[in-house]
Write a protein that binds this DNA or RNA. Structure first.
Length: 382
RNA sequence: GUGGCCUUGGUGAAACGGUUAUCACGCGAGUUUGUGGCACUCGCAUUACGGGUUCGAUUCCCGUAGGCCACC
């Protein structure tokens, strides 16, 4: 099911292959986010072309609309949305923490009301499992209790221990054999809590392990500490998933610390606000100095393994006035045929195509980044 | 031609003669980490022009320019 094809000698990075019911995934990999059964502005065919191997969707959103039963009736989430590859769903633990109103946590589960309708719902480890099994996804996540930062250690401990008890209940009610189930390590920024959580979850024997409760307001440097504590005591022969992260340099750092899987709203959400992720090598390509395609492909992938700085990529805000008359291509990969000035205009006039092109750019960047990471592990550079 | 009303950022509107001229949109620049496209932060004005009264004028008076309405 899960195989490590190569272990880096320079770091804890590994080149991996994960077999799922809907196909194989080469890791480390990034999952574009399709919260409500759609990656915003793109269709599944385009995701394939971009190189997406798997997408992430949400228990919380789909149970509210259209309801998991309807999707089950339609043959499962993949068929419902016409995506032929693997899907991972989040359990709803994070969403009831970040989105729901009037959240009440008890040992049984979480009651909350949907801000849109006002209706009350109950999410428990058992029905989170049931919903994810109805959706028929390849990877289900255990229902966890997420807590923000800062919080008292006693509260973090309580939520971590509850997460472990819930994980055990998830295990018991998970009967769909072809679906993998991942546990989620909690414990905030405390080493003893993180270690406890990781150990207890390992004892429950999951198909993969996620590090959760990161990027919930804690200082950024803490992430490295957390991964340094947790990853070494997770089973080596299981996938390691860092939930919700992150920026390109954070992903590379996490890969070095042994993480195989990522998801993040950054590329798609920021695209909708006009922020584009670009390779620095592309920005230095000025009009006039045309290069041959063969040389260009080398230029696109900088040796980001060297040095600590992040100047191998840049972000620009295409809505900035300085792009009004910038007739250079948006990028030199999948959007060479459109100029920055055109995209600037699309944002200025609020054309739907604006978000679409920006999303195509950012996902191309993220998925190429992952491809490059795999290549560099393969060739011993990372 | 005569009389009346009017002129405040890019746009539309506020401000009894009294702090740094307010609000919305727009524009300019940011924030965004297991997704609302939401939201938030910061910046953007010689109050049409020229005079006068006053301790102090967007506010009161006179003139000029421009706009709207009515009448001959």
């Amino acid at each position: 099911m899960f195989k490590i094809l190569k272990q880096s000698s320079k770091s804890k990075a590994r080149l991996t292959r994960l077999k799922t019911a809907h196909g194989e995934i080469m890791g480390p990999f990034f999952m574009p986010i399709a919260t409500k059964a759609a990656v915003k502005n793109l269709n599944p065919e385009e995701l394939k072309v971009l190189g997406a191997q798997i997408i992430l969707s949400n228990t919380y959103h789909l149970m509210l609309t259209p309801g998991e039963k309807l999707i089950k009736e339609n043959g499962g989430l993949a068929k419902f949305m016409n995506w032929s590859g693997p899907i991972l769903t989040d359990s709803g633990g994070f969403q009831v923490f970040s989105l729901a109103r009037l959240r009440k946590i008890t040992e049984e589960g979480v009651t909350f009301s949907d801000p849109a309708s006002g209706k009350k719902y109950l999410l428990t480890p058992e029905n989170s499992m049931s919903i994810q099994q109805d959706l028929g996804v390849d990877i289900a996540m255990a229902f966890d209790d997420v807590i923000g930062y800062p919080a008292k250690k006693s509260q973090i401990k309580e939520s971590m221990e509850r997460t472990t008890r819930w994980a055990s209940r998830c295990k018991k009610s998970h009967i769909l054999k072809k679906q993998m189930l991942f546990g989620i390590v909690q414990g905030g920024t405390y080493k003893d809590l993180r270690l406890r959580s990781a150990k207890d979850l390992t004892d429950l024997d999951f198909d993969g392990y996620a590090v959760g409760g990161v990027a919930v307001g804690e200082p950024r440097e803490k992430m490295k500490d957390i991964l340094n504590w947790v990853v070494p005591i997770l089973p080596l022969n299981k996938p390691h998933y860092l939930m919700g992260l992150g920026r390109p340099e954070e992903i590379i750092q996490a890969v070095r610390l042994g993480i195989d899987m990522f998801d993040c709203v950054i590329p798609t959400r920021e695209a909708r606000h006009g922020r584009l992720y670009l390779w620095s090598s592309e920005l230095s390509l000025r009009g006039g100095s045309r290069r041959r395609p063969t040389k260009q492909s080398k230029l696109l992938f900088p040796h980001f393994v060297r040095g600590r700085n992040n100047n191998w990529y840049k972000t620009i805000n295409i809505t900035n006035a300085k792009y009004r008359a910038d007739f250079l291509p948006i990028n030199n990969t999948n959007l060479k045929q459109y100029s920055k000035a055109y995209l600037h205009h699309l944002f200025a006039t609020n054309e739907p195509l604006a978000m679409r092109l920006a999303t195509l750019n950012n996902l191309d960047f993220y998925l190429r980044l992952m491809k490059e990471i795999r290549q560099q592990i393969k060739t011993g550079k990372l």
